[in-house]
Nucleic acid binder design. Structure first.
Length: 184
DNA sequence: ACTGGGTAAACAG
DNA sequence: CTGTTTACCCAGT
């Protein structure tokens, strides 16, 4: 019963899936891939070391002028965070499809200043669930816009690094840029 | 250093 | 709804 309802809702969502445009963003650290919807930046991918996995740069619709503007905002913000600074502006973020808990977690991440860290437990509390540290970790792992939404500033309560969707090397590098002393 | 119980959220079936 | 999987935490060995 509930399964059937879930399936039909899913079908509805699939039906109104918006077209995404994919743009490359060059930095000193490599070429990032940004995916824009009509609502804003939906995803940011780290430079791909190996092949070209984002298979679809081909059949995309041309970026709107708005999306080109968002792309410039994204590029500028990216440079600033990579330099260890707080970005002066962010593009609008498309968090559609995420849960309320995830959005609360991601919003809390935006309040962590460069050079500061916060634990999964603290983020869970920020998001309104003090016993949800593990769930907060899951939400961080599902963050579609790493770097700009600084999930790399979240570490474990016992002083370890925790995980990182883009690979722990990136997490270490980003924290080092911000002057965070790493003891691992 | 390791283990086990507690805990929450997303997901597949 | 049940089971499985986590980027966790804490108190015991």
């Amino acid at each position: 019963l509930t399964l059937a309802i879930a399936l039909s809702l899913d079908a509805l969502f699939m039906e109104r899936k918006t077209t995404m445009t994919v743009l490359k963003i060059k930095t000193q650290e490599g070429t990032f891939t940004a995916v824009f919807s009509e609502c804003g930046l939906a995803r940011l991918e780290f430079p791909q070391t190996k092949p070209a996995p984002s298979a679809r740069n081909n059949g995309q619709s041309a970026p709107t002028s708005q999306q080109r503007r968002w792309s410039r905002l994204t590029a500028a913000a990216l440079q600033q965070v990579l330099a260890g600074k707080k970005p002066t502006a962010l593009p609008p973020l498309d968090w559609s499809g995420s849960t309320a808990f995830q959005r609360r977690v991601w919003k809390a991440l935006l309040h962590i200043a460069p050079g500061r860290t916060r634990t999964y437990l603290q983020i869970a509390a920020d998001a309104g669930n003090p016993s949800g540290a593990r769930a907060a970790g899951n939400a961080c792992g599902a963050n579609p816009v790493p770097v700009l939404v600084p999930c790399h500033r979240v570490v474990t309560a016992n002083g370890e690094l925790g995980g990182f969707s883009g690979g722990l090397e990136w997490k270490r590098r980003l924290l080092a840029r911000e002057g965070v002393a790493l003891s691992f």
